[in-house]
Amino acid sequence: MTELADRTWTAVCPLERIQRERPVGALVAGEPVAVVRTHDDRVFALHNVDPFSGASVLARGIVGDVGGRPVIASPLFKQHFALEDGRCLEDADVAVATYPVRVVDGVVQIGSQ
């Protein structure tokens, strides 16, 4: 847990600002991040750039599940990325970076990688 304590945490917004299954974009240390709140109120953060197009758009994707894993679908070419580890379901060699997330006093905070 000491490792976690060393992280820099960026407060993004109140949890209530994020609609369930409708992510928002955030800037964390200059990097665009997609912040996802699932239907059961878990919160995930992934790098916002879609590796297939290079566009900063993942936060605008549809959230759901594929084979029971929570995913977000890129709005450009519809590849699915697992919320838990950022892996692309269609191409095992591709992944997006994920960020640690915590909710403190109702505020979503995203940790440095």
Binding site: A11, V12, C13, G25, L27, P32, V49, S56
Partner: peptide, 15 residues
Amino acid sequence: FTSFVNAPGAPDPSV
């Protein structure tokens, strides 16, 4: 209609 929830006026720098 915001790119970044914590910086509402900021344009997407990647564009």
